[in-house]
Amino acid sequence: MARILVFDSGIGGLSVAACIHQRLADVELVYVADNAGFPYGDQPEPVVLGRCRSLIAEALREFSCDLIVVACNTASTIVLPDLRAMTDVPVVGVVPAIKPAAACSVNRRIGVLATPATIRRPYLDNLIREFANDCQVTRVGHPQLVHWIEGSVSGNDLPGQALSDALQPFRESAVDTVVLGCTHYPLIQRQLARCLPDVRFWVDSGDAIARRAEWLLEQQGSLAATADGPEHPVRAILFSGAVPEGLAAYMTGLGLAPGDIRGHWPGVGGATATASA
């Protein structure tokens, strides 16, 4: 059975994992969340690089994987060359889906919802210049949104009015397409759509990553259909910090029922959580 390692600084990469599982139901996933270092946008680049390299190397020592998916925009802009030099396992990163957004926008007005770190990075300027040069692009980088989404795992409600207020620039610009430029954001797409009912297209990178993963596994000859697929779509989910309360139920709701759940990994004090986590 093929196995993919999905890495993020928190639970946002579960949106990517769900897309991969939907397309590749016979593939087993291992998920690593560096929530002790969350959010990466607040960390110096050398710190992000060191944490990513260390945790991914440790995960590969424990689990033989056929593919690595870095499901984090900030990490993808920093660590991909080093990871590819570190291991022979193919590595896939994620970038904001500017190209497909420009392809589907009718009124040529696009919103980019991302973290402040992503909004500031030159690579976003380059993507817009290359693929959406004829579009009016409105950027919103909200510092608290990823924290709200992380808290939703434990049952905390999103602050509806604050969320609506944060999206006001998109209303003012009359965008018809919004790029979800952080892997956390597809997890709350329904709430976002309620705030912005006039947006016609919501675009993220999850499906594109799943297609790329499928192609790479096919090239390796790693894909093989099984009778029932894996018992747990996510064989293990490993947190560098504490396991969020309510995690197992949240993942099951995404179609990603986990097997092994561990917190404070890979430290000696880390313990496997029970199914009630």
Score class of each variant (00 low, 15 high):
95 V>F: 04
13 G>S: 11
168 Q>E: 13
109 R>H: 08
182 C>A: 01
134 D>N: 10
252 T>F: 05
76 S>Q: 10
82 D>V: 13
243 V>R: 02
62 E>V: 04
68 I>R: 05
240 S>G: 04
137 V>H: 11
196 L>M: 02
4 I>K: 07
156 N>P: 13
11 I>W: 00
74 T>C: 10
6 V>S: 07
45 E>C: 09
190 R>Q: 10
223 L>Y: 00
59 A>I: 07
220 Q>D: 06
97 A>V: 01
194 R>E: 14
177 T>F: 11
38 F>W: 05
171 R>T: 03
155 G>C: 01
223 L>R: 02
85 A>P: 13
218 E>A: 14
201 F>R: 03
129 R>W: 14
93 G>Q: 00
229 G>A: 03
264 H>A: 09
15 S>K: 02
122 P>G: 04
213 A>M: 15
5 L>P: 14
74 T>Q: 09
7 F>V: 01
251 M>I: 12
203 V>F: 07
77 T>I: 06
143 P>G: 04
59 A>F: 05
208 A>M: 09
247 L>F: 08
228 D>V: 05
45 E>S: 08
59 A>V: 12
25 A>F: 13
143 P>T: 01
266 P>E: 02
12 G>I: 02
101 A>H: 05
100 P>A: 07
200 R>Y: 11
242 A>F: 08
164 S>R: 08
188 I>W: 10
91 V>W: 12
270 G>K: 11
162 A>V: 04
169 P>A: 13
34 D>Q: 06
257 A>I: 05
23 R>H: 13
171 R>Q: 05
90 P>H: 10
263 G>R: 07
178 V>A: 00
225 A>V: 09
242 A>H: 05
3 R>L: 05
43 Q>Y: 04
152 S>Y: 02
117 A>M: 11
121 R>G: 09
230 P>G: 01
75 A>W: 09
132 A>S: 15
103 A>L: 12
92 V>M: 15
65 C>W: 00
235 R>T: 14
114 A>N: 06
